[in-house]
Amino acid sequence: MADPLDLVHLRTLVAIAETGGFRRAADSLHLSQPTVSQHVRLLEKRLKQSLVVKDGRGSRFTGAGERLVLEARKLLTAQDEVLQRFSVSVPEKLTIGSTEHAADGLLPDLLGALRAAYPEMWVQFRIDRSTSLAESVSKGALDLAVVLGGNADQVGAEVGSLNLKWVAASGWDLSTIDGPISLVAFEEPCGLRRRAIAQLDELGQAVTVSAESGNLDGVLAGTRAGLGIALLPFYGAVPEGLREITDLPAMGAIDVRLVARRGLDTEVEDAAVDAVSAHFAGRRRLQGVA
């Protein structure tokens, strides 16, 4: 018996046809563009035929690709009809994760929006690091998660952003540093840690990670204790006991994204995306940012 075609890969192929390109398909499916490209390559490997080829600066379907899109639509329609007959449209329980940086003020707004839309639903929250939350969503252990972006392989829908700031204890002074700069950071894997080290390295500054922690409270405590500087995302003002270091280049902002487990009801996902996006838009208005 021949190996079956992967329906996830077929859905990606159809999305490319319907949206008009790999990037738009990635956005509509909440996938990264490299993942979309990989799905197409795996289909081509399985069928031993080219399905999509480059055409100038864009791409186009081959004859085999166009035929497969037609057949894929039939298969996916049949699958969706079966799932609709055997699934409950709205889950009774929803488990949502949030990174520590984004949780402050956000979770009450998100909880209120979901309870208003689905009053019978029980909502449970988990606060953790972005890497752990994204992995839990991919495994189906979490329904939704609000995570920090900033990686090449982006997933989920962008719903807002947080300002990145260099912070240190009140007595820290860059001009007095003779030797490597001490950095307080999250344990690996951590995109913020790598971003901070890369920026300091670009400035010709040697870096030593003087303290690390698996959570935000630990990083803040180490920074307040004067163990080094830290690069962290903030909603607004720097927490008490710290001051922003403006002697180093501004690091801009990091995007906040909402990722959903595969198979979650799209209405629930859309309600969460709207609630989180509205929360960040409201904070921008309060801060006078367009």
Score class of each variant (00 low, 15 high):
residue 5 L to H: 07
residue 5 L to P: 11
residue 6 D to F: 04
residue 13 L to N: 09
residue 16 I to A: 00
residue 22 F to Q: 12
residue 24 R to Q: 14
residue 25 A to T: 12
residue 27 D to P: 12
residue 28 S to F: 01
residue 32 S to H: 07
residue 36 V to R: 13
residue 37 S to D: 06
residue 38 Q to Y: 09
residue 42 L to I: 11
residue 45 K to Y: 06
residue 46 R to S: 05
residue 50 S to T: 02
residue 54 K to R: 15
residue 57 R to W: 01
residue 57 R to I: 00
residue 58 G to H: 14
residue 60 R to T: 00
residue 62 T to K: 12
residue 63 G to I: 02
residue 67 R to L: 05
residue 67 R to S: 11
residue 68 L to R: 09
residue 69 V to L: 02
residue 71 E to I: 01
residue 72 A to S: 15
residue 73 R to E: 03
residue 74 K to I: 14
residue 75 L to W: 03
residue 75 L to N: 07
residue 76 L to M: 08
residue 77 T to K: 15
residue 78 A to G: 12
residue 86 F to G: 13
residue 86 F to V: 15
residue 87 S to E: 13
residue 88 V to Y: 02
residue 89 S to W: 06
residue 89 S to V: 08
residue 89 S to E: 11
residue 91 P to W: 03
residue 92 E to W: 03
residue 101 H to N: 03
residue 101 H to F: 05
residue 106 L to Y: 06
residue 108 P to H: 13
residue 108 P to F: 11
residue 110 L to T: 08
residue 111 L to W: 11
residue 112 G to C: 13
residue 113 A to T: 03
residue 114 L to I: 03
residue 116 A to D: 11
residue 118 Y to S: 02
residue 118 Y to C: 01
residue 120 E to T: 13
residue 122 W to Q: 15
residue 126 R to W: 01
residue 130 S to M: 02
residue 134 A to I: 15
residue 137 V to Y: 04
residue 145 A to I: 09
residue 148 L to M: 07
residue 150 G to H: 09
residue 159 V to C: 13
residue 160 G to A: 10
residue 163 N to Y: 10
residue 164 L to D: 05
residue 166 W to V: 03
residue 168 A to L: 06
residue 171 G to K: 14
residue 171 G to E: 14
residue 172 W to S: 00
residue 173 D to R: 14
residue 176 T to I: 02
residue 177 I to E: 15
residue 183 L to T: 13
residue 184 V to G: 12
residue 186 F to L: 00
residue 188 E to T: 10
residue 190 C to V: 04
residue 192 L to W: 00
residue 192 L to G: 11
residue 193 R to C: 08
residue 193 R to H: 12
residue 195 R to F: 08
residue 196 A to E: 15
residue 199 Q to W: 00
residue 200 L to N: 11
residue 201 D to W: 01
residue 202 E to Y: 07
residue 202 E to V: 05
residue 202 E to S: 11
residue 203 L to N: 14
residue 203 L to R: 15
residue 208 T to M: 06
residue 210 S to G: 08
residue 211 A to E: 06
residue 211 A to N: 09
residue 216 L to S: 05
residue 218 G to Y: 05
residue 219 V to N: 10
residue 219 V to I: 08
residue 238 V to P: 06
residue 241 G to C: 07
residue 244 E to T: 06
residue 245 I to Q: 12
residue 246 T to H: 11
residue 251 M to Q: 13
residue 253 A to L: 04
residue 254 I to E: 00
residue 254 I to K: 02
residue 266 T to E: 11
residue 267 E to Y: 04
residue 268 V to S: 08
residue 268 V to Q: 12
residue 269 E to G: 05
residue 270 D to K: 12
residue 271 A to L: 01
residue 272 A to Y: 08
residue 274 D to F: 00
residue 276 V to S: 07
residue 280 F to V: 04
residue 282 G to N: 12
residue 282 G to E: 11
residue 283 R to S: 10
residue 284 R to M: 09
residue 284 R to Y: 04
residue 285 R to S: 13
residue 287 Q to A: 14
residue 290 A to Q: 14
